[in-house]
Amino acid sequence: MTKLYDALQESPQTGINLSNLNPEERQQVRQISITGTKGLSQSNTPGRTADVYYLEGDERAAAKLFVEEHREALERLDFSKKDTLQTSVPREVYDWILHELGERTLTKYERVVLEERSNGTRWIIDRTRFEQHPDRRYTVNEGKSARVDELSLADLYAELDDPLTESDLRAHRAVAGNVRYLLEYFRTAEEFACSPVTINEEMALRKH
């Protein structure tokens, strides 16, 4: 095992020469390299960036290092539009880069993922959908997610009566999508003391 591979096992690295790894080690190395996609506009780009090298499983640490190295350039990007970062790196790495920048905060639970965006929107998404079908996460029409706009989840929870039912959530102005994912989030997140119950054949939560 080479010293460089030992270093990669410790943490992601920049400024390395892959030729210093043996062939078997090189096969295990991944990298964040911003190249863009041929045919797409290159206007929304961070400019020239240093590549970050990492081993599979270290995606979050690699994203953190990439942001530390390029924060100023990344903060100039418009993430509401297609950008060269999005078209250059795996979706999981892109998600963690946005997380480290503060554009989106991800919290993963057993069955759902909470994504909180800097504009105030909250997505609660089926975890399998989030991880296996990233191109189909952000829709309220396929029954695999819920969206809450212009209201924190804590305020939404506090506004609703006890017991909190599916019908209550569906009727709320700030909520769209499959409200069962919201119920699952409230049931799982530590800050909400509640228990699942069934009321009039609906899923619901009894507050404590």
Results as ranks from 00 to 15, higher is better:
208 H>E: 05
145 S>P: 10
72 E>G: 03
9 Q>I: 11
55 L>C: 12
151 L>P: 03
57 G>D: 02
139 T>C: 13
51 D>C: 07
201 E>N: 14
192 F>M: 13
137 R>I: 11
68 E>N: 12
113 V>E: 10
116 E>Q: 15
140 V>N: 13
6 D>T: 15
84 T>V: 11
24 E>R: 15
127 R>C: 12
26 R>N: 07
139 T>E: 13
42 Q>H: 13
103 E>N: 09
88 S>N: 04
173 R>I: 02
171 A>F: 03
185 Y>H: 09
108 K>W: 07
157 Y>I: 08
85 L>M: 14
182 L>T: 06
139 T>P: 10
80 S>V: 05
18 L>V: 14
158 A>V: 10
88 S>F: 02
4 L>W: 01
13 Q>E: 09
149 D>G: 01
50 A>Q: 12
182 L>W: 09
199 I>P: 00
184 E>Y: 02
145 S>N: 07
159 E>G: 11
24 E>V: 14
137 R>E: 07
107 T>L: 08
72 E>H: 08
123 W>E: 05
66 F>K: 01
166 E>A: 06
191 E>D: 14
100 E>K: 10
146 A>M: 12
89 V>M: 05
40 L>Y: 13
76 R>W: 05
149 D>A: 04
81 K>D: 08
57 G>F: 02
84 T>E: 05
69 E>P: 04
20 N>E: 11
48 R>Q: 13
149 D>S: 05
34 I>G: 01
6 D>M: 14
89 V>Y: 00
75 E>L: 08
130 F>A: 09
52 V>D: 00
15 G>I: 03
25 E>Y: 08
22 N>A: 09
6 D>Y: 12
77 L>C: 03
100 E>I: 02
98 L>Y: 01
55 L>F: 07
2 T>H: 10
75 E>F: 04
90 P>Q: 06
63 A>L: 01
118 S>A: 14
104 R>A: 15
172 H>M: 12
159 E>R: 15
119 N>W: 12
180 R>I: 03
63 A>G: 03
48 R>T: 13
168 D>N: 15
130 F>R: 06
192 F>Y: 15
148 V>G: 02
108 K>V: 07
77 L>P: 01
170 R>F: 05
156 L>G: 06
163 P>I: 04
111 R>Q: 13
166 E>T: 06
26 R>K: 15
50 A>C: 08
69 E>W: 03
52 V>H: 00
50 A>I: 09
195 S>W: 07
106 L>T: 12
130 F>G: 04
28 Q>I: 01
94 Y>A: 11
188 T>I: 03
7 A>I: 04
89 V>E: 01
97 I>Y: 00
53 Y>E: 03
208 H>Q: 07
72 E>A: 12
45 T>R: 12
163 P>Q: 08
22 N>F: 11
30 R>G: 06
177 G>D: 05
126 D>W: 03
110 E>K: 14
101 L>A: 07
207 K>H: 10
20 N>K: 15
132 Q>H: 05
93 V>D: 03
94 Y>Q: 04
107 T>P: 00
